[in-house]
Design a protein around this nucleic acid. Structure first.
Length: 344
DNA sequence: CTTCCACCGGAACCGTGGGAAA
DNA sequence: TTTCCCACGGTTCCGGTGGAAG
């Protein structure tokens, strides 16, 4: 569909999360390094596995996709992207890989053992190499899958995580394999670098004069080194301006965009919780800080008021673990002196 | 110093639900 | 249809921990 009557947005997809730009600014070193690691695939040899780490919005995922797409123009390899946040078990990771390789029909059976998935994958790989991008690899619950995949021939891994601490308290055999990978750091962008990236996106996604250079610099300053946030601010304020039928983005819309992004992110995260987790989160939020004993006591009260069957104590601790892992709640102290608090 | 207490978290276990084979 | 097999979320069990109480 052509956006003929649009006054702000030229091409919305260029401002969305999964867009892969034709060039990646300020990542020349990383790009070269990964290209070198993938190089052997062109001659049908195994690539060197890579591990990309850095804070959110530093271009890791984008880079991985970019490099894989680029390579596919020169080599016949398959590729698949798996997000370990949603696929955290050994079974789920393998299932996703096979699914993205087009093997769904063959494995419709639900009662299939995980080891059989490994065998299927192994046999499919006889046909050629496959690059697997494992995003948010630090969210994996069964790290053993990393061992399975690293020992498999014709599979190339691109692992992505927020911090290199995935290496800590992990099985030594797996750790040594991770250490042997090419570890590539993605530092946060500076405001100047972010402004360059935004200029590129604005050229693709927005109509001329929809946004001023000065405003782009302001967004870059706001985003705190996070390209995802920067581009989101631009997209949301552009959509806002478009819906108000303006012919340029107003400064007031820019200022409104950042809190809206945070709000949306939180909303999305809360949606993913179950009712017990929401009760727990609500209690900590209301009190700002809660000792474990008080938290569980109040949970019991709230839940019986609402007529919900209380979850087992161990289950509650697992729920709290999830909440803390999502950074929605902070935790300090040990044992019965553990105290939970609201972040930020 | 020893025992107790209340929570933490790993591991084994169980019930459930869905798909396939008999 | 029944029977079997499996993954998965939740539960049960239990050793660990460290300040408080005796």
């Amino acid at each position: 569909m052509y956006d003929v009557q649009n006054r702000i947005i030229r091409n919305l997809s260029a401002l969305e999360e999964h867009f892969i730009p034709s060039r990646l600014l300020h990542r020349e070193g990383q790009l070269e390094a990964i290209r070198d690691d993938l190089q052997p695939l062109i001659n049908r040899r195994d690539m060197r596995d890579v591990f990309l780490y850095g804070r959110p919005g530093t271009g890791k995922t984008c880079m991985a996709r970019y490099v894989v797409e680029e390579l596919k123009k020169h080599a016949s390899v398959k590729s698949c992207y798996v997000n370990c946040w949603h696929n955290s078990s050994r079974f789920r990771v393998l299932y996703s890989i096979l699914e993205r390789m087009g093997e769904v029909l063959a494995i419709h059976r639900k009662g299939i053992p995980t080891d059989e998935l490994l065998d299927i994958l192994r046999s499919r790989l006889k046909a050629g190499h496959c690059i697997v991008i494992l995003d948010e690899v630090d969210k994996l619950e069964e790290e053993g899958i990393l061992y399975d995949l690293t020992e498999m021939e014709r599979i190339g891994l691109i692992l992505i995580a927020n911090n290199p601490e995935v290496f800590f308290d992990i099985d030594a055999r797996i750790r040594s394999r991770l250490m042997a990978m090419d570890n590539i750091e993605f530092p946060s962008y500076t405001a100047i670098e972010l402004a360059d990236i935004l200029k590129d996106r604005a050229e693709l996604g927005l109509l001329p004069n929809a946004i001023e250079k000065r405003q782009i610099e302001a967004i870059a300053e706001m985003a705190g080194g996070d390209a995802r946030i920067a581009i989101d601010i631009m997209r949301i304020s552009a959509e806002d301006a478009e819906s108000r039928d303006l012919d340029r983005i107003g400064d007031n819309l820019l200022a409104k965009a950042l809190p809206r992004i945070k709000e949306k992110d939180l909303e999305k995260a809360v949606m993913a919780l179950n009712e017990h987790q929401r009760v727990l989160l609500g209690i900590v939020k209301a009190r700002q800080t809660a000792k474990a004993s008080d938290l569980y006591e109040e949970y019991g009260k709230k839940v019986s008021e609402a007529g919900i069957k209380a979850a087992n104590g161990r289950t509650l601790r697992k729920y709290m673990e999830v909440l803390v892992g999502m950074k929605m709640i902070g935790a300090s102290g040990e044992g019965r002196w553990r105290e939970y608090s609201i972040n930020g």
